[in-house]
Design a protein around this nucleic acid. Structure first.
Lengths: 363, 363
DNA sequence: CAAACTCCCGGAAACGTTTACAGCAATCAG
DNA sequence: CTGATTGCTGTAAACGTTTCCGGGAGTTTG
């Protein structure tokens, strides 16, 4: 009796009270020492000792309640398995970690409901700020973004006058870069494997593809356009459908996962890349360089966008009165073997011998 | 004056006090209604109305301080870009989300310091539990795990008697599966591209490789063994070094990223896969299926391990007195084209024409 | 030597919730 | 008609921290 068990927390772990009592000082002094502000040498020594003896570690939640900050930044992306988001994430991580905060990654699966639900959860103040890269945007989604209680930065296209910090690229122009490059290399039957048209990037890339062809006076052959989603399997399936009905001499893909699927489909169907069909992906992820042949790809500056978004967010957290800002990262094209001007990477694709040296298994 | 600005929070957002005052009830009643326990119909109506009018959303931090739970689960992995962790993460996320919690993902970069630092931060109670998949383990690391204030589950090998929940696989045996398969296919000059030997999986796989060869009475040719780290680029470089000094007829790789690097190196050096060199990766990630030819790979059940770890963690959170448990997920081998018994996937690798149909660019 | 200043300390009030407890009115059983 | 039960309600005490504020001791200045 007496100390009324104010000494330690419910689960028996030491609190600042424990430390203070043990050091024979007030909790105020203990807290000050623990935070490194003030305290006489003697007090500092006693508190430090007491803290070490009981193994005190401050409760971050209580601290957050007091300081109104959690030190957490959330990142919501559609698909955590897409390497483009991995690169974005790494860039964001770097900036966020440098500011002494932690990154909380959340995959939305592209479901818009998920994302608004997430925003609502954030309204609960578990994070100091959020970066979100939505692929679909509706009005109430936008509304949720605008009056979010915590700062939000959006990576991706957003309505022109949305009062939200925004880092975007121009994937429409990005597709044009790819088409220009292919046309310059003499390709004419250029196909396009896109993601869903009801997504923001899907729509922009479709528009870019058509505009680019038009600019070169090439009419769009709808049999050369196919849609799946932004995944590998869908890209492969879409390419197979496309190849079943048309004969492109080049393929632009709406992202690298699709491009890898397309490469697989092309090779499996006996087409050579790039001599029969040139291939250009988009996002310029590590995956493009991992393929054989390495894939040309339109860089949309994902790491750069991530970095800038993180910086914007940190600035807004520091000063919430800032006017909404918008930054743009230009696309660029990385030309690699899959669309190289030279007809083929022939020495690498060694032909199988006409007669296999080992007995055939079937037949 | 009078209400002493107790009505709203520091930044002007409504609190339960705001709602209570507006509804003309006590904060206790307001809180009860908001949590859906008790309250007369009339009170419920008034509180609901007031809450809606002011746009009240509860402060999760304050709630956590009270309830001692945050609803957050942390996952610490080495490299968020490695598809094996993506799969693990997806499985964990599923279980975690089903329990109404959120997953916080943290990349450690394999730095042991990072990981202990993370554990220390966790000691600060921001998360209700943690899943960690360390590739290096030291004693004080282990100590930090053992007396972590929040429940921890480790995915990976751990000292036999470590009193920590643990989900493991047997990658040693996994390598044996790969070697057995290759030997059965008639390969004898089997190479091994491993990750760092000072990591737990690196060491286990090295041991497995040597044991497997010994079991088949094959002597280890050290020129056929190379080490990099668990990344694509390192795998490629290591394979190039290996190929520069030896001529394997099969290659076992310590994970799929390395295997992809090896495939790239092999093809670039003019070797056919699998007819010249058979290739087997490890982890059986989506990446293995994305390659051409598709890679054989030893599955270590990453998704399954993730799922089980998450379940173990949730059970421990529910009942912290549970004795430490250990689960094991057996490896299995997925045989695909890269090590198929048939000599080659020849029709797919169409030879480039002897004389290119288009003029050569250089010379 | 008095006044002003500097340090350091402890008490207590936040931060925004949930919840144990007690009071009170209304209903019910006897 | 009284006593017990029920159902709501409000007061207040937590949760573990940080921090404002006033007071006391010691030091400098005029």
């Amino acid at each position: 009796m007496g100390r009324k068990r104010l000494q330690e927390s419910a689960d028996g772990r030491p609190t600042v009270h424990t430390v203070a009592a043990r050091a024979g000082v007030s909790i105020a002094s203990a807290s000050r020492v623990l935070n490194g502000v003030g305290g006489s040498p003697e007090t500092v020594r006693k508190v430090r000792e007491a803290a070490a003896e009981v193994g005190y570690v401050p409760n971050a939640i209580a601290r957050s309640l007091q300081s109104q900050r959690t030190g957490l930044i959330a990142l919501a992306v559609e698909d955590i398995g897409n390497p483009v988001y991995v690169e974005m994430m790494r860039a964001i991580e770097e900036v966020v970690a440098a500011s002494g905060r932690q990154l909380l990654v959340h995959a939305t699966g592209g479901q818009i409901a998920n994302e608004t639900a997430l925003l609502r959860r954030l309204a609960h103040r578990y994070v100091d700020g959020m970066i979100v890269s939505p692929i679909r945007v509706t009005d109430d989604h936008l509304a949720a973004l605008v009056d979010s209680p915590v700062p939000v930065v959006v990576i991706g296209q957003l309505g022109a006058d949305a009062p939200v910090d925004n880092v975007r690229t121009d994937s429409r122009t990005g597709v044009c870069l790819a088409v220009d490059h292919l046309v310059a290399a003499g390709r004419r039957r250029i196909g396009f494997v896109n993601g869903p048209l009801d997504t923001v990037p899907g729509a922009a890339r479709d528009a870019g593809f058509r505009a680019a062809l038009a600019a070169h006076g090439i009419e769009v052959d709808e049999r050369l356009v196919e849609v799946g989603d932004f995944q590998y399997a869908a890209g492969r399936a879409a390419t197979e459908r496309l190849l079943a009905r048309a004969r492109p001499d080049a393929l632009v893909c709406a992202n690298d996962l699709i491009a890898v699927g397309a490469l697989h489909a092309l090779l499996a169907a006996g087409h050579r890349v790039p001599s029969d069909v040139a291939l250009v992906g988009m996002d310029d992820t590590e995956l493009a360089r991992m393929m054989f042949p390495q894939l040309s790809s339109v860089s949309l500056g994902s790491a750069e966008r991530g970095r800038r978004a993180a910086e914007l967010l940190l600035q807004r957290i520091a000063d919430p009165t800032l006017p909404p800002r918008r930054e743009q990262v230009p696309p660029s094209l990385a030309v690699r073997a899959s669309s190289a001007a030279v007809p083929d990477v022939s020495p690498l694709f060694v032909p199988a011998p006409a007669a296999p040296p080992t007995p055939e298994v079937t037949a």
